[in-house]
Design a protein around this nucleic acid. Structure first.
Lengths: 139, 139
DNA sequence: CCTTTAAATGGAAATAGTTTCCATTTATTC
DNA sequence: GAATAAATGGAAACTATTTCCATTTAAAGG
């Protein structure tokens, strides 16, 4: 994840042990995590760590393109790893409702500045839920 | 909004004064509201009314297709009126960042059951932000 | 109408996710 | 190794949302 380290440095952020650990945690799992889950996982690896710091770090990492935050209507927030940070063409994500695995969905037709229903488009949220190939078989 | 009344009745829900008032409030404004805003507006019209009831009603009305809940990353939730409830072909919405006006965006290419990146699609969130024609002129 | 009944309501309190504050520690630069 | 801005952790504050429960009410059937 040296690419991630670059993104952090380029954003003027420090490369701290907790940030490295957070990146490793997301690297090693295909699924999204809540801030609380990240805290628990970090604590297992490097001892005590505060939830406020986790929140700050998840936002910081999302801000510099290492993570992204999932859209949804639940009360908890989820973050996942950008697996091709920086080099990505514009794309969105699909999450498996069974195992949580996140995959890319390419070919978004929307982009900033285009006209849409008489509006000038500024931003958009596109997010999918489905069942991944693996979970389709095992059910 | 007789259509809305039908949707409420068809869902086995009661047509209460508060629900009628909530529908009117959304009817008279082109923009989304938070639960708190709805409470304030209802109180101005028919006196005291509790926030828990507003939450229950907004969810109930969204559940039967009268309202829908907007996606987003803010800490507050927003609801808006389905302006063609029931008869709508599948579509999404764009919200003006300046005045809040909501419009339809038709032509979604995604539907339940289709394959997408190896996943079988179950649901999706598509939500747009932009500047409406009116606000483009007046700036 | 009048009765019955399940649903809706409002207020208070509980929950829970998130943010703020601040004193201390630490990564980075020179 | 020293200087400095950023990061950290704990406690507390915030705030949106939900739960609980006693009371009221819409709707259905006599």
């Amino acid at each position: 994840m040296y690419k991630a380290y670059q993104l952090i440095r380029n954003a003027g952020l420090k490369l701290t042990p907790i940030r490295k650990e957070i990146i490793l945690i997301f690297e090693e799992s295909p699924r999204p995590f809540t801030p609380r889950e990240v805290q628990n996982l970090v604590q297992k690896r490097i001892g005590r760590c505060g939830l406020p710091g986790i929140y700050r770090n998840l936002e910081a990492l999302a801000g510099c393109g290492v993570l992204f935050r999932l859209a949804g209507f639940g009360r908890e927030r989820f973050y996942a790893l950008c697996r091709e940070p920086g080099t990505d063409p514009h794309h969105h994500h699909i999450v498996c409702v069974s195992c949580g695995k996140v995959a890319h969905v390419d070919g978004c037709r929307y982009h900033e500045g285009m006209m849409l229903g008489g509006y000038r488009l500024l931003s958009h949220i596109v997010q999918f839920e489905g069942v991944c190939a693996n979970c389709q078989e095992n059910n």
